[in-house]
């Protein structure tokens, strides 16, 4: 175990976990991201911070090929995302699924293993044990058999986190895991994140609470349609940069975007 661990962390340090080059996404009427280029350091906790509509979720979805991108190259550990899916774990926003669905917490976590289990093969005991272990790590072991709508918001979020954990990925993409969760869930998530870092994994976390950024993360990306700044929290998380991120938008860019959309629709 230790051996494989150090091995995987060795490869993780060799290749950049996530490298985005000239990424531009323009879709429907939603916010767009322009020209994002990033290289994220391995083994760090990366906070993505920016105002509403800054394209934070769009960035993650574009990385995972969930939405078409207008331009740009994305490398995950030096290869394309499709080749390295197994090394990426995704924690979507809580609103993205129907919580009335007839599955329990354990089922949801097991879904993280479906790819490893393979087509048409049933879920076996060892998979359920692995899922149970992941639930234990987020402090939900005794709620494993609850139907998911009967979990509190924070517990649902932890279930999603456990689903990502069970994949044993090297890069985790998390879409607002701290949104509207209780204090104990927040603590549980932070513990898990630190544990990940200790094992040499990388987590990219969309975050909205500026007060905790410095405490939780060691690397930060300030995003507002484009990357305003990125780097270690110490260097980058400064009042001026925040002012640039949250302060006035580039109105002319907005205008030309609007003009493009309008032309495309009307003409």
């Amino acid at each position: 175990m230790n051996n494989t661990l150090s091995e995987s962390s060795a490869t993780a340090t060799k290749a950049i976990p996530l490298s985005i080059d000239d990424l531009t996404v323009a879709y429907h009427r939603k916010p767009v991201i322009w020209d994002v280029s990033l290289d994220l350091p391995a083994g760090s906790l990366v906070g993505v911070v920016g105002p509403n509509g800054a394209g934070k979720s769009t960035l993650l979805k574009a990385v995972m090929d969930l939405i078409p991108r207008a331009s740009g190259r994305i490398k995950v550990f030096g290869e394309s995302y499709a080749d390295n899916r197994g090394r990426v774990g995704y924690v979507p926003q809580r609103e993205s699924v129907d919580w009335d669905f007839p599955v329990d917490a354990l089922d949801v976590v097991t879904m993280g293993l479906y790819r490893e289990i393979g087509w048409c093969f049933p879920v076996r005991k060892k998979h359920r044990q692995a899922a149970m272990e992941a639930l234990r790590r987020v402090g939900m072991a005794d709620l494993a058999n609850r139907q998911i709508s009967q979990l509190s918001g924070g517990q649902q979020q932890r279930t999603f986190l456990a689903r990502a954990l069970v994949q044993d990925a090297d890069l985790y993409l998390m879409d607002e895991p701290f949104a509207a969760v209780d204090a104990s869930t927040e603590r549980a998530i932070v513990d898990v994140l630190r544990d990940m870092r200790a094992r040499g994994k990388t987590a990219v976390v969309i975050h909205h609470d500026l007060q905790t950024v410095a405490e939780y993360f060691d690397y930060v990306v300030l995003l507002n349609m484009r990357v305003v700044a990125h780097g270690s929290v110490k260097d980058v998380f400064t009042p001026e940069n925040l002012q640039k991120t949250y302060g006035g938008r580039l109105t002319l860019l907005d205008e030309v975007t609007e003009a493009m959309r309008h032309q495309r629709r009307k003409l």
């Binding site: 979507p92 993205s96 669905f101 879904m111 790819r115 689903r163």
Partner: peptide
């Protein structure tokens, strides 16, 4: 349950 997660897992 979660089509987007399914496609993110390949």
């Amino acid at each position: 349950f979660d089509g987007q997660f399914a496609s993110s897992r390949g």
